[in-house]
Design a binder for these strands. Structure first.
Lengths: 124, 124
DNA sequence: ACAACTGTATATAAACAGTATACACTGTTT
DNA sequence: AAACAGTGTATACTGTTTATATACAGTTGT
């Protein structure tokens, strides 16, 4: 499982792991029913503690993205695809909303943001 | 000074205070040389500790937004306006960038984001 | 000098992030 | 059935971050 974590980031390790796995589920790179790497092997890969990977998996389970069976492993859950898209839309709306707030405060125009959007959408 | 803080937010108190004061400086609601409320009076207003308001002011000073003189008070610093705008632009670019990343992962189109941008820009 | 205001320093408590290690469950191999 | 090698779980500990109370020190006007 290719996950890249940064120790110098201000984002907690378990959250970096959580987000990247969530992304793989949302993008369908990880499909429903698929077995995730064990917390141990993932921890060894990333050179972090077993407990940290466990925390990541626990949060994913709390949010309904995975299901874990003691002694067996952790599997991608059958989460409603429409619900997932709705969550992503809301996340984006939140980001755009703060961006707009900042723009208004500092007198930045809508066109400047539009340009950023155009450029960033092509680039990646 | 009207600042609204939420105890239930996941954002630390000192950071909520810091951001809102920074916004007032960026929007020129607080002008260069102006005296901020004392850490004590602000703490009393917001019903938080003196140390917490002090932490907020310290960070603002570290970022060059204010200057504080022991025994006298804390004043809005004469920070380069162009530099401030540059910082705000970068902050917005970061937000749009993550929004675009999420959109690409979950198959959300540029048009959907554009619509959000239009709506949010009119609303507020 | 004193009173009333400023910011500062020290010590403490609680929550959070990350860890190591010992424990318990599941499945396979013998 | 016993042994083993894999899975997740629970406990206990360390260091950092967030927030606090309280005692200290500088500035100003009377």
């Amino acid at each position: 499982m290719d996950i890249i974590i940064s120790n110098s980031s201000n984002i907690p390790l378990y959250e970096q792991v959580k987000e990247q796995i969530k992304n793989k589920i949302v993008s369908n790179e990880l499909k429903t029913g698929e077995l995730l790497p064990s917390i141990r092997s993932l921890a060894k890969d990333l050179r972090i503690s077993v407990i940290t990977t466990k925390n990541a998996y626990e949060e994913l389970e709390r949010e309904g993205y995975v299901e874990t069976i003691p002694g067996k492993g952790t599997y991608v859950a059958n989460k409603n695809k429409e619900l997932i898209k709705e969550e992503q839309l809301q996340k984006i709306e939140g980001l755009i909303d703060t961006a707009v707030s900042i723009a208004k405060i500092s007198g930045i125009s809508k066109e400047e943001i539009r340009e950023m959007l155009d450029i960033l959408f092509e680039e990646e």
